[in-house]
Amino acid sequence: MIILLFFLTHWYLSVLMQTLFLHRYAAHQMFTMSKGWEKVFYILTFIGQGSSFLSPRAYGIMHRLHHAHADTDQDPHSPDFSRNLVDMMWKTRTYYNDILNNRDSIPAKYKKGVPNWEFMEWLGDRWPVRIAWGTAYTLFYIQFATSPWLFLLLPFHFFMGPVHGAIINWYAHRYGYTNFKVNDTAKNLLPFDFLMMGESYHNNHHKFGGRANFGGFRWHEFDPAYPLLRLLNRLRIIKLRFGRDEAYM
């Protein structure tokens, strides 16, 4: 039971920070916040993603490219231009690392306004830090796992961020249903998104790229992250940009 709770806590904290901070804030600027709160979210993302920490700056830039060039040869992660899931994720890794290490030639318009706390970007990407997180997960399992089979969950802890990306970037472009006609293959992967905190409403999001609520177009579509955004807005931690239904670019 302890291992299951630990896994679920890591899963949902990781995907929550990815959808709130990396996706809706860094990539789409659906809301604003002070530099102080931005650093708080950086730290929460570092804790939530741990060994698979993804740079908000690199993620934001790369995701903007995805929206601008979805399902073309310029898309950083399109199933239509990949042989399989592993090939797509390797291409994503190449794009990501080029951006992270300033080896890219991406136009400046895609980089405007992305968050960039240089210290946390550096810290989260250090291999000793990633290994330390992985060691901590392993020691926790050694202490509390009641069956050897539970150790099969450890790789998900190690690569939590990329796993979440793979679920949406591959499967939500392959399977599911559509509410809207868009110029790509984005689909709503789950009718009720209990798994990805609203991220699986991918067709809705590709139609309305600036809309903070990814669900709400059918009775069963509930975006769990949106009420949290409304609460943070009421607490004046963030300021939502209501009415932004356009795509970022």
Rank of each mutant, 00 (worst) to 15 (best):
S14K: 05
S14P: 02
V15P: 05
V15R: 15
L16M: 13
M17H: 10
T19N: 14
T19H: 12
T19V: 14
L20G: 03
F21Y: 06
F21Q: 05
F21D: 13
R24H: 05
Y25E: 10
A27Y: 01
H28D: 09
M30A: 07
M30H: 10
T32L: 11
S34T: 13
E38C: 03
K39G: 08
K39N: 02
Y42L: 09
Y42S: 05
Y42A: 01
I43W: 10
I47G: 04
I47V: 12
G48R: 12
G50H: 08
G50D: 09
S51D: 08
S52F: 00
F53G: 12
L54A: 15
L54R: 15
S55D: 07
P56R: 04
P56D: 03
R57T: 03
R57M: 09
G60E: 12
I61W: 04
I61S: 02
M62K: 10
M62R: 14
H63V: 06
R64I: 00
R64F: 00
R64T: 00
H66E: 05
H67G: 01
A68W: 02
H69L: 01
H69E: 03
D71C: 03
D71N: 07
T72L: 02
D75I: 05
P76H: 00
S78Q: 14
D80V: 13
F81D: 15
F81H: 12
S82H: 14
S82V: 01
R83C: 00
N84I: 02
L85I: 12
L85P: 06
V86Q: 15
D87L: 06
M88W: 09
M89A: 01
W90L: 14
K91P: 05
R93L: 07
R93T: 11
T94D: 11
Y96H: 11
Y96G: 07
D98I: 08
I99L: 08
L100T: 10
N101S: 13
N101I: 15
N102M: 05
R103Q: 14
R103K: 15
R103M: 08
R103T: 09
S105K: 14
I106T: 00
I106M: 03
P107G: 07
A108L: 05
Y110A: 00
K111I: 00
K111N: 03
K112P: 11
G113I: 01
G113F: 01
V114L: 06
V114S: 10
N116K: 13
N116I: 09
N116T: 11
N116W: 15
W117F: 10
F119C: 10
M120G: 07
W122D: 08
W122N: 13
G124P: 03
A132F: 07
W133A: 02
W133R: 02
W133N: 06
G134F: 04
G134I: 05
A136Q: 12
Y137H: 11
Y137W: 06
T138Q: 06
T138D: 01
T138L: 15
T138P: 11
